[in-house]
Design a protein around this nucleic acid. Structure first.
Lengths: 248, 248
DNA sequence: TCTATTTGTCTATATAACTAGACATATCCC
DNA sequence: GGGATATGTCTAGTTATATAGACAAATAGA
């Protein structure tokens, strides 16, 4: 941490939350790797210029999340978790990328609806505005832990059974295969970040104010026809995206 | 937005801040594009289940940021800003990618230091641990607006004048060219997200609690030798990263 | 075993955030 | 012009957050 890590008062974020975020960042950057522990509460309190109780609130929230473990008389131990790496390549599939890191992947269908293509959907799928679209909401899990939630759009005329098939196979790739698309490629991916919406917090089991990565992506079949337009939301503290530029 | 109380109490994030975030998200997703205005304060207050004054605090903070403009008797107007798109390709350069969108780019050297390579730096640059490293802190701006801040690492033996040259040319690409590297390519990019550190808030002129994208990247010369290892931090509400895999 | 260190718990007080209501003032539309 | 709608401002009371201090209880090391 830097010499005088300050707390912004009246910023809409309580002091303990800001301190929790800073401790979390310090842990991620390996600042306490030598001891495997967070400094004593009194030391942190002085460093941040706050009361010890405020530091305790911060530590309590991180302990609740499982990032820290407090032992009376001893100190506060770090239970470090590495982020899963989600590779984004021309051949990106949710099930494969993380699966190679030993995680058991599955996609659960939450809901679906039918709608008319708005301008952005029509552009992405190269369809006329107003075309019938199937929108699926899914949650992707690695080893039972939800790591992403996606809203995906498909041309209803071409993939009328998408919802049913994703629900049955727990995989978009398999649902495509069952509808005659044996292979497909990622065309583009645009990534940004923001705080999670309440709905996303629920699906991804995040605490309020958690940061998420938002990826807008387009897939196409091997003839170049657009088949899927998705907005995927990843829990930023569980996932990092690896962008493959091997030969772009 | 959904009907239920979408504000998490006692979460460390004040009600007005959560409401500001939600309004901001709704604007980004185009929810108010038909009117170009935010709903009246009383409507929002009822929707979020809070007092009108709390909504006013949220709107005040967004107005301060320039995202909203309030007109008495009329309503609250949206001053929409699109995110700049930062393309990530094999030939990614800070100056070029955004420049194509009509922005005037520059890189300002903030500070530099010399250090011994830690394990992660040594791995990224394919150097032995303990090798002498030059670390540069820079801020990248588009049209005078800071959009990213980077901490970059170079092999001091090969690029001893890196700090001086970046400071003079306001460009890493030009600094490389002045040291015999006419062309280079992006080897890898890994992206995650978190809230900004105090230092980053200062450099990027962000409000406390802002979300940033963090990109860890490695560049290599055309012989494949690693020449740069950077951690770049982007203001997520100003920038999105785009990976084009149309022909990887 | 004794002491220093560190987390756990309690009470009390001050400050900030939120609620509640009233009324002023600017804009739009009939 | 006048009514309806919307933001602007003020006062007061309540609830949540942060500060302050004291002491208990568990751990580690001399």
């Amino acid at each position: 941490m830097s010499q005088f890590s300050t707390i912004a008062r009246h910023s809409g974020i309580s002091a303990w939350k800001q301190i929790a975020d800073q401790i979390s960042r310090s842990i991620s950057s390996g600042e306490f790797d030598d001891t495997g522990m967070v400094p004593p509460e009194m030391v942190l309190a002085e460093k941040f210029g706050v009361n010890r109780h405020t530091v305790r609130s911060a530590i309590a929230s991180l302990a609740e999340e499982g990032l820290l473990k407090r032992v009376q008389g001893r100190g506060t131990l770090i239970e470090k978790r590495e982020r899963l790496i989600f590779p984004i390549t021309r051949r990106t599939r949710f099930s494969e990328g993380l699966g190679k890191q030993g995680a058991e992947m599955s996609t659960r269908l939450i809901s679906y609806e039918e709608l008319e293509a708005t301008q952005d959907i029509a552009d992405a799928l190269a369809l006329p505005p107003g075309a019938r679209i199937l929108r699926l909401r899914t949650v992707g899990s690695a080893d039972g832990q939800p790591v992403s939630t996606a809203t995906s759009h498909f041309d209803k005329a071409r993939f009328p059974r998408m919802a049913e098939l994703v629900g049955r196979h727990h995989s978009v790739t398999k649902a495509f295969a069952a509808q005659g698309v044996d292979d497909y490629v990622r065309v583009s991916t645009e990534v940004t970040g923001r705080t999670a919406a309440v709905e996303e917090e629920a699906y991804l089991k995040l605490s309020p104010g958690s940061v998420v990565l938002v990826a807008l992506s387009v897939n196409a079949d091997l003839e170049g026809r657009r088949i899927q337009y998705s907005r995927s939301v990843f829990a930023a503290d569980k996932i990092s995206l690896k962008l493959d530029t091997a030969s772009v």
